[in-house]
Structures are given as C-alpha cells and as structure tokens.
Design a binder for these strands. Sequence first.
DNA 1: ACACAAGGAGACCGATTTGTCTATCTATCG
DNA 2: CGATAGATAGACAAATCGGTCTCCTTGTGT
Lengths: 192, 192
Amino acid sequence: MDKKEQLITTAFQLFYRHGVHAVGINRVLAESGVAKKTLYNHFPGKDDLVAATIDHCDRRYFSWLNGRLENVEDGEEALWAVFDALDDLFKGRDPSVQAFYGCYFINVAAEFSDPNDPIHQKCARNKMEMMKLIRFHVAQMLPYEESKLEISDTIAMLIEGAIVRAHVASDADAALKAKAAAKRLFSTQVKV
Amino acid sequence: MDKKEQLITTAFQLFYRHGVHAVGINRVLAESGVAKKTLYNHFPGKDDLVAATIDHCDRRYFSWLNGRLENVEDGEEALWAVFDALDDLFKGRDPSVQAFYGCYFINVAAEFSDPNDPIHQKCARNKMEMMKLIRFHVAQMLPYEESKLEISDTIAMLIEGAIVRAHVASDADAALKAKAAAKRLFSTQVKV
DNA sequence: ACACAAGGAGACCGATTTGTCTATCTATCG
DNA sequence: CGATAGATAGACAAATCGGTCTCCTTGTGT
C-alpha cells in the first residue's frame, strides 16, 4: 500500500467534494488512515498536497477521456465523443467516475483565484492540454480550414460553458446542448 | 454610514478575491472597521453574510450590465453589447468595476458545490436571471425563430465558457472570441 | 433631560487550523 | 542478528476559526 498515493486519492475526493479550504489536513489523515508524520514526510505542506491532487485529477481525467476516444476515429467523431463523455459525466452514467461536482480545475482555480498563484497555474495547464486535444481533432476534421484556431476556441468555450451550466445551474443536458451548438457551428463553417 | 452595507461590501471584496472559506470573520471585521457584535446583530452567522454578498454582487452586476445596455437597442445590439461589456471586464477596462477574478457566482458555487446547498442555489438563481435576459434579447432578435431556447442556451454557454477561459486560462480575448462565435451562429441560424 | 437602541472594543469560549516532534513499532536488507 | 528507513499514534504548539458575551460609549427620539 503506497501511503502517498492513498493520501492523494482521499485528499482529492474530499477537496473535490467540499472544497480545498473547507477540508483540513486532519480530516484527510483520518479518512485515509495515514499518520500526520507520513504526510509531512512526503509533502512540505498542504499546498503541495493540493498540487498533487491536481496532477492526480489531470492524469485520471485524460486517461478516462482517452479511454472513451480509443475506439473512435480522430477528428469529427472524436469531437462528438467528447461531448457524449461529458453527457455521461453530468448524468452520473459512467460508473468509473464519481459523482459530478463541477470541474476540479475550475473549482480549485476559483479558490486560488490569483492567476499568478502556482496552484492556479497548474489548473490552467490542464485547460491548455484540453485545448491541444481539441485543436488536434479539429485539425483532423478540417485540415484545409484556415480558421482552425478560432473554431477550437469556440469548442473549448462550449465545453467549459457546458460544465459550468451543468454544475452551477444544474442543467444536466448542457453537454447535449453544447454538442448540438457545435454541430451547428460546423455546418456553417464548412460551407463558407 | 450603514454598518450592514459596509460589512457586505468589504466581505464581498475579500470573498471574491480570496475565496469564502479562506477569509475569516475577523478579517472582514478588521478591514471593514465594524465590531463583531454588530455583525452578529445583523446576521445570524457567516453563511448569512455570504448569502448577502451574493445578493449584493447580483444587484451590482445587473445594475452594471443594464447600464451598459441602456443606450443600446434591444435584441441583436444588446446581445453584442453584453459580450463587449465582458470584454471590458476581462481587460480591466471598466473603472467602475474592480479587478477580474472570475465570476463570483461560479466561484462561490464551486466552494459550496452541493447543488442542494442554499448558497449554491442562490448562485444558480443569478444564472437563471442572466438566462432570462439572454432569452429576451434573442426573442427580440429572432421573433419568428422556433429554436429560440436552443440559441439562448448556446449564447449562455458561450458566455460562461468565456468567463471561465478568461479567468482559469487567462485568455483575455475570450469575450471577443465568444462574440465572434455567437455571430457565426446567428448567420447560420437565420438562413435556415 | 432621560431612556433606549446601536455600535465599539475586545475578552473569552471551545473547536479547529497547519505544522513539529517524540517515542514506538515494523519491515527490509545485508 | 543488527541496522536503517519509514510508518504509527498522538502530544503539542501557536494561530485562527465562528460565535457569545460584557462593558462602555455614542447618538437619537420624546
């Protein structure tokens, strides 16, 4: 049993569910069954544990997402599959993922809202990776389209918007709505 | 000097800047120059003060936004003006508004992530009001369009997405990108 | 002039915060 | 077997948390 991993996973669950500042170190220790000394043996302080949970969530998220894109063709199909994956996520239809309480990166960035904060920047890095994934599939889909970057930006905003509306406004169909909007967008763009 | 108002405005500033759980009651009191007794004279507890800051921000936001829409025609023009207002907000170009650290409602909802939490629901209510505003102007713009609700949902998601990307990913041009995407969307929809 | 309400300053409460440290136990490796 | 590394439980520290309370001052209405 890797104590460090154990610490990170339970910390992530608690931080995701209740917020970083609302959960104390002692609760993480109690629920993970790890001694305090061990925690401070692996991490200089709480912030470093928080940073580790972000990395943990990032790995988990992309491994989950890439799993869903595995048997799907790159490009258009993959793009729709991303929205379908979000739809399952919002509706709790994917048993491999815990209940949905918004995007961990958005939530943590909200608590560490200074863009210069290293934890905030770690969250930003996840968004950059996601943008890269979107750009890749958009480029596959529209190799001769000169406005690939703009289209990718739009897709990214629709995704973030869907996540926010699903969580804050409890709009469980947000992913499907965003998917439909993206489809409409492509039907215009291709014709032009 | 209305102590209650004073309390709410400084609490809002601190909560918005640093997060609700990261700011203690004592700090709010110290920076507002209000006595602890006075606080608990006006509010049963901290959560009620948090709720009051949400209402405060909601009023401030809509009064600011309606001010920006005042000399603008309802419908299409107003819709673009919303994006322009966000652009000014993201770029700190509006002196009447403090620095941008994301959407307060999204941030607070992230800290109180349970959708059943009354504070979370207060945040959701702001999003509903915003949706109503969007629907009104979309209806003015496309009175004979049968998919008005879908279009409004898309606009709402583009706005939320722009806010998130502006804050988390530090994309200062997010509002302009969202505006361009919305325009593309309309150019499709109207033709159909 | 007097009463009453509200605010101010801050002591105080018990609980909790992050973080340090000691002392003991255990597992692995040579 | 003995040494070393890492984990254990938990005491402890200093600060802060939300919240209650007392004592005193200040302002206002009658």
